[in-house]
Design a protein around this nucleic acid. Structure first.
Lengths: 192, 192, 192, 192
DNA sequence: AATGAATGAGGCTTCATTCAT
DNA sequence: GATGAATGAAGCCTCATTCAT
């Protein structure tokens, strides 16, 4: 009765946990196998190489967060609400999937990410930049390079998440709202 | 006529470049030696292990950026100016030392950083949080957890730098000023 | 409607092709399965092990060439004609079954051939040596160790075939006749 | 006082012995190291890969035999004597270096030989074909494709050596002379 | 101090074989 | 009989580290 994906799931989960802890290069494939409860060779039935495995891990989670952000995006709401929606979706994801978020955002993937994943990565940022750009047209957002504003906001969000993960702050609903509000102030036009 | 530090410098420089490119675990000591133009054994005359070497690299640059930020800090200026000063010091450093900044801020050091370096790392953030806290007392800064505000600001700065490094924006003086101003808006009180 | 031997044939054919190309030790059983269009497990329904498979391949072809040489052997013809007949039978086989001949004659089987196959191998040579020995009795063949003469002739034939396979000569009927004649001169008595 | 080549020599010798016994693909690098009395990693200080090692083994011996054949070649002697000289040089080499000769001539190298070695291999045969061709001009040799005659002769020689190695004949001076004489008869013109 | 050959444990990956379906 | 996922031992190779020079 075991679903055929069980082992693949176990491998992906073990890989994520170990990559987060020790980094891609610092993680041995046999140790992934051990944590997943499968034989080392089994990993190679499902992934052609360690590199393909790390890309599968990346893709799985990047697609998931992108899906959640898009799914929760209120396309016809005013910018202020759209901003809050994206912020909250991401926070919900990042709080519920610490390892995945840490891996996606706080690890350097340059030496192994494939093109499809690089495109995936760029896609979410383009969406966010487009949202900012559109809001700008209605004068609600500062007349500043929208990509810059988007990167500042994502960066701030990541700074907050990392501080939370590392225990320097404890994110509760109030603090999350404070942070969201502060970041809106960063991008909002003077008289917003 | 070569001073003995020349080789140490070459080793540290080669190590930094390779760690940035491939990560700590992905970088072989012999390849550091080759890039530095020394024999592999030479590295072990100056550093007891690969781990000690990576800590030396981290320390060197973390101390340097901390020194520059402190040196350029206008202790008696108003908060708005202090904020700008820190921002500009860091930008100057990050623009002039891309590899070092990338290594310090965008790599996961958890698996090898020694305690001294962890303390170093925490120190700069504590200083910044203290600056924010003090400014808050004068009502210029939002009455929000100062650590949160500091982390948001550092995060935004890092988001900006990474976007610059990766070519999504091109930081010039104007854009840097826009970014700084936006981040000030994030932390500034409503009536600032 | 497929006869059960179809798969066995496909396996034997794929095994031969791959053994010739990469050698026994260099060929993976799963790759044989893939080339044969069957599952890896299927091979183990028909052959107990990789070693048994390679012995089956060897046996199949060694028996076939032995059969053809014997079938075409003119037992009551004069030695000169018998020599030519064997030569031509072998040439016909070797030209029609390049992979098989290459595998049988130009690969080192010592590390896996079973006793039955070793006996098979020896059998054909013994037959040829016997033919030479008998001809010698009639004075047509040099009074030299018949095994030596036989090995020289087989060696010459193999040298010719390898040169043909590798493109250094192009065997046509005339050249084949030249070669056969030259080799007869090697074994024939002075006044033949 | 140990010459620096000692380890390289030991590795090459162990590799030859094992390749002859088990074939290239059937021989494990660690087992070569063990037989050579060095650590596995040491092999990789001297040879970039197993493939480079096998090519080094091939080159070393192919050059050696080529050197001996050329060195012993009586350039101004009559063809009959040149033929005998080459034959004897090769026999001397093949008898003194059984493993090397077996490896060079009785193993299939197609899947790993590099271009330089393929050229080396072709070189000796071209030399021999040229000798045959020249002798042909003086009418002493059959008016038959000289490459064919050369390949037949080499093949016969190899057949003889293999029979000797495998114990079907025991080559002494007399038998060697018989064989040489028979092969000369194969290539010599009718009235030679 | 500097060298770089040597080491051998350990990493990534392959593959002969098994077994539940 | 046929399948192919799974196994884990073993293979090729890398690399942190040592040491004789």
């Amino acid at each position: 009765m075991t679903a055929p994906t069980d082992k693949v799931d176990a491998i992906l989960a073990a890989a994520l946990a170990l990559f987060v802890e020790r980094g891609y290069h610092g993680t041995a494939v046999p140790s992934i196998a051990e944590h997943a409860g499968v034989a080392a060779g089994t990993i190679y039935h499902h992934f052609a190489s360690k590199e393909e495995l790390v890309n599968a891990v990346f893709r799985r989670w990047k697609e998931r967060i992108a899906h959640e952000v898009h799914a929760g995006f209120p396309a016809s709401a005013p910018p202020r609400e759209q901003f809050r929606a994206i912020w909250n979706q991401m926070a919900q994801f990042a709080l519920a999937n610490r390892d995945a978020y840490t891996f996606l955002e706080f690890h350097h993937h340059a030496s192994y990410l494939d093109d499809a994943n690089k495109a995936l990565d760029a896609g979410l940022k383009q969406f966010a930049a487009m949202v900012v750009g559109r809001a700008q047209a209605s004068g609600i957002i500062k007349p500043v390079n929208p990509v810059l504003l988007m990167e500042l906001t994502f960066g701030a969000f990541n700074g907050m998440m990392r501080a939370h993960y590392e225990g320097r702050i404890v994110l509760d609903a109030a603090m999350l709202a404070d942070a969201e509000s502060a970041c809106w102030d960063a991008v909002a036009g003077r008289e917003a």
